[in-house]
Nucleic acid binder design. Structure first.
Length: 196
DNA sequence: TCACTGATCGTCT
DNA sequence: GACGATCAGTGAG
């Protein structure tokens, strides 16, 4: 696997959201390496009323304003962490939510972290994916394009057919087609209709 | 397989 | 004090 360089990442949030489908997310943690092929993302673009950055920078979302290729991790609903890849220029406040992945390396580690047997459900959903890869608030702000423990690798099997839909779980800007996924991939989250 | 519900807590109002 | 970029469990079809 080869690490992706920042220059290879599109600056545009929507282009980055599409680009990330098929790329590989790797976490080298104390208990070993886990990795997953990204199959579903959502774009949180500049000026987006459903984006955490909409009302400006706060203590919680400050890493979302880093230049593209950094991790923005937050804790939600008292239960789950979600991982984003920052986008646009430094200071903008935009990112791509990584919603689901197909487990590659470290299956046993992921099963232990998630207390889950079925490979299909290990990283199907943003909270599940973060849990499977051992991603929590300590990963917030990490540079995914540096020589660190959390990084992106070039797609070995690029996505063939990418679908679009409204984003999941939001209450504003609900009609914009900013969710992207590899069609007919069983590791994509949501009901069957959102995976077709 | 899908729809619905309660859990749970950090953040911002 | 309300509200989330969610999840696991439950029950019906």
């Amino acid at each position: 696997m080869r690490r992706l360089r920042r220059s290879e990442l599109p600056e545009s949030t929507v282009e980055l959201a599409r680009f990330l489908i098929g790329t590989i997310l790797v976490h080298d943690a104390n208990d070993g390496r886990t990795s997953a092929r990204i199959v579903e993302t959502e774009a949180y673009v500049p000026g987006d009323a459903s984006s955490h950055a909409y009302r400006g920078m706060t203590a919680r979302n400050r890493t979302m304003f880093l230049r593209r290729g950094h991790a923005y991790v937050y804790f939600i609903y008292g239960t789950s962490y979600c991982l984003n890849v920052t986008s646009e220029r430094a200071g903008t406040g935009a990112a791509v939510l990584v919603r689901a992945g197909e487990p590659l390396e470290g299956g046993v580690i992921m099963q232990r972290r998630r207390a889950c047997e079925r490979p299909r459900d290990l990283a199907r959903g943003p909270g599940r994916l973060a849990a499977a890869l051992g991603i929590d608030i300590r990963c917030d702000g990490l540079d995914l394009c540096a020589a660190g423990p959390l990084w992106l690798a070039r797609a070995e099997s690029p996505a063939r057919d990418i679908g679009e839909s409204p984003r999941i779980g939001i209450t504003r800007e609900t009609t914009r087609l900013l969710r992207f996924y590899e069609r007919r991939n069983p590791y994509v989250s949501g009901p069957a209709a959102l995976r077709a």
